[in-house]
Amino acid sequence: MAELNIQADSVTKGYRERLTEGRWAMAHLVHVWHERNGWSHKVLPALAETLDLGRVHNSQISNLRNGKLASPGPEVFLALGQANAVLHAGLESIRARLGEVHPELLEVLAAGAEPLRNARGEALGAGDLLEIFVGLAPLPPGFDWRIEADEGASLSAALAEHLCGGQSWRQCRDQVMAAYPASKSQRRERFAEVMAGLRDYSAEELDGELLDLHATHQALGGSSRSGAEGFLAELRQKAKGMTAGTQGT
Rank of each mutant, 00 (worst) to 15 (best):
R146A: 15
D128H: 09
G112I: 05
C172K: 12
L159Y: 05
L129W: 00
F143L: 09
L136W: 09
E148I: 02
L129S: 01
S156F: 11
P141F: 14
P138C: 07
A160C: 11
E161Q: 11
E114M: 13
R120V: 04
F143C: 06
G127Q: 10
S154E: 12
S154D: 11
R173W: 08
E148R: 14
L139W: 10
D128T: 04
C164L: 11
E131N: 07
P138E: 14
P140H: 12
L155P: 03
E131D: 12
S156K: 03
R146N: 15
L129C: 03
A137R: 15
A126E: 13
E148Y: 06
A158D: 08
W145D: 04
E122F: 04
E148F: 05
L116A: 01
E148G: 05
R170Q: 15
C172S: 15
L130W: 06
R120Y: 06
A123R: 06
E122Y: 05
F143A: 04
L139Q: 13
H162Y: 00
A110L: 11
G152Q: 12
A158R: 02
R117E: 13
L159M: 12
N118V: 08
P141I: 14
G152M: 08
W145G: 01
P141H: 10
W145N: 05
Q167N: 07
W145T: 03
L139R: 10
G127F: 07
G166H: 07
G165L: 09
L124W: 00
Q175R: 15
A111C: 10
A113R: 09
L139G: 06
L124S: 02
P115H: 11
A111Q: 15
P140F: 08
A158M: 12
H162Q: 08
A113E: 05
G152K: 09
G152L: 11
W169Y: 14
Q167D: 14
R173F: 12
D144P: 07
E114Q: 14
E151M: 02
E122D: 11
L130T: 01
Q171D: 15
R146G: 05
Q167I: 06
L124G: 03
N118H: 08
A126V: 01
E151R: 01
